[in-house]
């Protein structure tokens, strides 16, 4: 894309996208990775994100929106800095995933798809995340935490809360 200076993405991500669209037999194959990586940086798929991705690939924004709406990891609204995704599917359910999910709701004071007032955490009940043999499990953004107990969940939350605080103290606000 020749309008690099106008990109809403960081120079690193813009450069990565320049390479990505050339990697496949068809430019369009870069669409889903681009949306996910853009979301990682911006936090969600804003109109501006979808417009730029559409332009880079050479398809309409409507087409991008149509594809994006299919995939459960892609979202059109911001979430917390740390998005806690609790698996409650069968293997996790059998080992107490709903108790973990309820515990998280109590601790965070939010429900499914809620965001805490300070914007640090959001909570989501998700489908199988592929860690069935180490259930119950959750993901915070892309990090897995398995073999959960309520105590372990508290430790996990505390570690991310501390991380958020130290990053705030440094004045950084980069999305994880």
């Amino acid at each position: 894309m020749s309008t690099e200076s106008l990109s809403i993405f960081s120079p690193q991500l813009a450069a990565r996208f320049d390479a990505l669209v050339e990697k496949y037999p068809l430019r369009r194959s870069a669409l889903i990775p681009m949306l996910l990586y853009a979301q990682d940086e911006i936090g969600y798929l804003s109109d501006a994100v979808m417009e730029e991705v559409a332009e880079r690939i050479g398809i309409t924004t409507l087409d991008v929106r149509n594809v994006a709406s299919y995939y459960s990891m892609l979202r059109f609204k911001p979430v917390g800095k740390y998005n806690v995704q609790v698996c409650t599917n069968i293997s996790c359910m059998l080992r107490g995933a709903y108790d973990i999910f309820e515990h998280l709701q109590d601790r965070l004071g939010i429900g499914h798809k809620g965001v805490t007032a300070d914007g640090v955490f959001s909570l989501e009940e998700v489908e199988c995340i592929g860690v069935c043999c180490w259930a119950p499990a959750l993901q915070v953004n892309y990090d897995f935490h398995d073999d959960l107990t309520n105590e372990k969940v508290d430790d996990v939350l505390a570690s991310y809360r501390a991380k958020a605080r130290s990053e705030q103290a440094e004045g950084g606000s980069a999305h994880a």
């Binding site: 069968i90 489908e127 199988c128 592929g130 860690v131």
Partner: peptide, 11 residues
């Protein structure tokens, strides 16, 4: 794309 609930071998 390992997604079948109960499956984590490819992981």
């Amino acid at each position: 794309d390992e997604s079948e609930p109960g499956t984590c071998k490819d992981h």
